[in-house]
Design a protein around this nucleic acid. Structure first.
Lengths: 340, 340
DNA sequence: TGTCATCCCGCAATCGTTTGTATTGTTAGA
DNA sequence: TCTAACAATACAAACGATTGCGGGATGACA
């Protein structure tokens, strides 16, 4: 709470003009000032514990050195790694990260974007569902650099970093096929969410690709990415096809829903029915049995988004469209060779 | 990316001097300017989509309207609710939240504090372990308002919002006692972490309080708050006391470690041995069996910390020391009446 | 000795606000 | 009619930095 030391103090201490002190302290301009003066100023700055005032600097340079990150729900463990990834690369470059938690619905996300613009962030990273993006974000894009993460927008007008769902579902389906499964079902996410539709389509594609019959009846859509809807959907699916030996869930929570459904039918997970999740969220390996899941590199997703954003801010031309990150498969006990 | 509209533009549009425009737009000074002028200025501001520049304002008023939150590990689901709580009350008041992820060790936390100070945040909320706090934080406290959350510092020189571990452990022990358990063990956290020691002491206190023998031999300390060390500690404990019918774990992950230990001994959780966790992290209710756990109100913890910080910033005298938040008990299938 | 580059450095404007003080115009009181 | 009081607004100085521009000192060279 004490009086801060300003550049003026440093200049006085070093016996130079404030502008000289400024140049001396700034690496990119230090070359045009006498080396020993630079040293003297640096010494003075050190002695006085000088810290440049980011507001004053930002006011002059018209950059806040901050970027906003808007998350649909901070309490969802999924977003921790994304934030961590973003933070790791931005802090490195001297930026700081403002986070906005849009847990009060789509319009809340809009107002957060608005807030961020007021604060004149240098860039924006959005992880909110695409539907929310459309309205406020588009015109925000005119004011500030912007990158989407884990979501994309239909026309790819905003650069996006997303997981390769097609490849991910492929990993799961091929894994099950290699284990000998021939009757594989899919519990899909809501079709109005981009991932819901994308993974569903990918599922049918890969089923055909591994030589099985891509019957749309093998897919049951859950109302929402939660355990309960997953159970309901799985029960429906298993009701129609009691002979299924494997289920590919569009999401970890749906997968856990499948766990419950399978158990309630008196069958054993990983023996009678194999199940795969998607995302590989924390603790999934501690479930009983540990769940095989497609792992999406969320942390890297955040890091890549941040890097791309920095490039945009720097004015580099970034090819728009979406960057696909390749998922891997974490194989655990919920999948096993088919009984027959 | 377009040219921003400044107060000057608004003033020109409204046909008044810039200072008049400033006062007209500021609710606390609008009273000293002619009401119809106020309206005219407001109209102009609306028309031009004027947004005050936070940097310029902050430079003048010496406040950034931002607070820093430092988290030991953003990827840990535990901190999501804390962040959400903090964010919810701060955004409400027009502050924005800078988050720092100290996942590269204690010194990293220090450098983040340093970064935050450079940015001249109006306040700081630290959730990092107390040991890390000591060094950099103390002198940071002289420069900026500061509140700890989920951690406290020995001499209570920094206000802290923490869960009431004593009460929480009491909930678990009394619950087990009421179920008829008489031989209850404790898998403790590391004693050099404040919660480790606190919960251990509380355990022995409550064991005595419910009329059992507070034998220190009933406690086994895990090396770290993780599953694996929990298993090791539980195996040691059960090795010494094969007749234990219940274990109070100092942490959910340690509790899951106990799950493994109990299973590896061929016993059934919730039948042969009851287990309680601590924190009640997400997904704990999806474990097999769902784990009974002490639930700490993390979101409220964040919210309270933020409120207290606002009070500090406003210059109100806040009684130092720690605020204890009362936990509750989420009773699930991992605890059941004692067999005898 | 005079001229000119070269190198450092100081001067001052500027970023967009807020806010203390001066100025203007209006009205009331004597 | 003159002045005091007051309201409403304008002026200008900050806040702390960056940066184009100009000027003084120094040295080289003729």
């Amino acid at each position: 709470m004490s009086a801060r030391t300003t550049l003026k103090d440093v200049a006085r201490e070093a016996g130079v003009h404030i502008s000289t002190a400024s140049r001396a302290l700034n690496p990119s301009t230090a070359s045009i000032v006498n080396p020993e003066t630079v040293e003297r100023v640096a010494e003075a700055a050190r002695k006085l514990d000088y810290r440049p005032h980011p507001l004053a600097r930002g006011l002059r340079t018209n950059r806040t050195m901050s970027v906003g990150v808007i998350i649909p729900d901070v309490e969802n463990p999924l977003f921790g790694p994304i934030i961590a990834g973003v933070e790791s690369v931005l802090v490195e470059k001297g930026y700081s990260v403002l986070i906005g938690n849009a847990d009060r619905g789509p319009s809340h996300a809009d107002s957060l974007v608005e807030d961020m613009l007021k604060r004149h962030v240098d860039g924006l990273i959005l992880a909110t569902p695409s539907r929310d993006v459309s309205d406020a974000a588009r015109d925000a894009q005119r004011e500030v650099s912007m990158v989407l993460v884990n979501r994309s927008v239909d026309d790819d007008s905003i650069p996006a970093i997303v997981g390769d769902d097609h490849a991910g579902i492929g990993l799961a389906v091929r894994h099950l096929r290699e284990l000998g499964h021939e009757r594989i079902g899919h519990v899909a996410g809501p079709s109005w969410v981009s991932t819901g539709k994308g993974r569903r389509d990918a599922f049918l594609h890969w089923i055909a690709a591994v030589g099985l019959d891509p019957d749309a009846d093998l897919v049951e859509e859950a109302e929402w990415y939660q355990v309960e809807p997953g159970t309901t959907a799985a029960l429906d699916l298993l009701g129609r096809h009691p002979d299924l030996t494997a289920i590919v869930a569009a999401n970890d929570l749906l997968g856990l829903g499948c766990y419950r459904a399978v158990r309630s039918l008196g069958k054993v997970i990983g023996v009678d029915v194999s199940i795969t999740g998607y995302n590989d969220m924390p603790l999934l390996d501690l479930m009983q049995p540990p769940m095989t899941a497609v792992r999406v590199p969320y942390r890297q997703m955040g890091a890549d988004a941040a890097s791309m954003l920095l490039a945009l801010i720097a004015g580099e031309v970034v090819s728009p469209g979406r960057v696909l990150l390749t998922p891997t498969l974490a194989i655990r006990a919920s999948t096993a060779p088919s009984g027959r």
